[in-house]
Design a protein around this nucleic acid. Sequence first.
DNA 1: TAATTGTACTATTTCAAATAGTACAGTATC
DNA 2: GATACTGTACTATTTGAAATAGTACAATTA
Lengths: 131, 131
Amino acid sequence: MIVLDLQSRVPIYEQLKNKICELAVIGQLNPGDQLPSVRNFARDLGVNPNTVQKAYQDLERDGIIYSVTGKGSFLNEKILLHSQLERQYLQKLEQIAWQARQCGIKLTQIIDAIQKVYEGELSNDNDEKPD
Amino acid sequence: MIVLDLQSRVPIYEQLKNKICELAVIGQLNPGDQLPSVRNFARDLGVNPNTVQKAYQDLERDGIIYSVTGKGSFLNEKILLHSQLERQYLQKLEQIAWQARQCGIKLTQIIDAIQKVYEGELSNDNDEKPD
DNA sequence: TAATTGTACTATTTCAAATAGTACAGTATC
DNA sequence: GATACTGTACTATTTGAAATAGTACAATTA
């Protein structure tokens, strides 16, 4: 189940894009799978169809999905997904790490913090990192 | 010199807060130092005085600076600065690392990427991580 | 006194995001 | 063919945070 944060500074359509990518990578969504229709998805998520449409359009532009009028939207067969997400996340991390370094934060502290994230089980379907 | 990105999704006043914090940590701004006046800073940065005021108010609330009517705004003596920034950046990194993990990105890749950030010299006064 | 400081307002503007609604073309099903 | 679904393409409107514009006042400095 996809949960959106309507209060976030991150636009809904971008959150949606990220969620779909994540579902695809963890295998809850597989190549060739049909995504919910723009209208149904919007209804289920409680947002406007145009918002879903924008997310789909972006995803298609990025080669993640493809859409056919009258049929629907489907996860693309070619999975550049993982490498694409990988690049995306690593880039984010590098950017923040860069700033952190500028502020005199030690590399070891960052390593420790991130290693801690990777400890323990991957059990919950929660999308937010717990505090 | 502080350069703001007026196109960024991040509000100007937040960018300004971050910049000031960074200047403080790297020692370009020292405890007790007087910050530019709201009006002068706004003029220099090319933004509205209210925007600077908001940044200062936030910084004072966080204990980074203190302001006295008629005198000015000054960097606080008590430097919780570093620990405060540290917490802030580590939290950001953890959050993204969490998402990255959810997407099946390996720990080693993250470590490698971040270590690369920490290689080389700290020479430029550029604030953005180069691509 | 004059100039500067921070602070506190209100009003207005700006802009991206989101919503609302309509319309049209392609597909599937009966 | 008829109906219902799909994606797509618009326009118009609303919303809300951010930023701007302007004024006013109290405290400090010179």
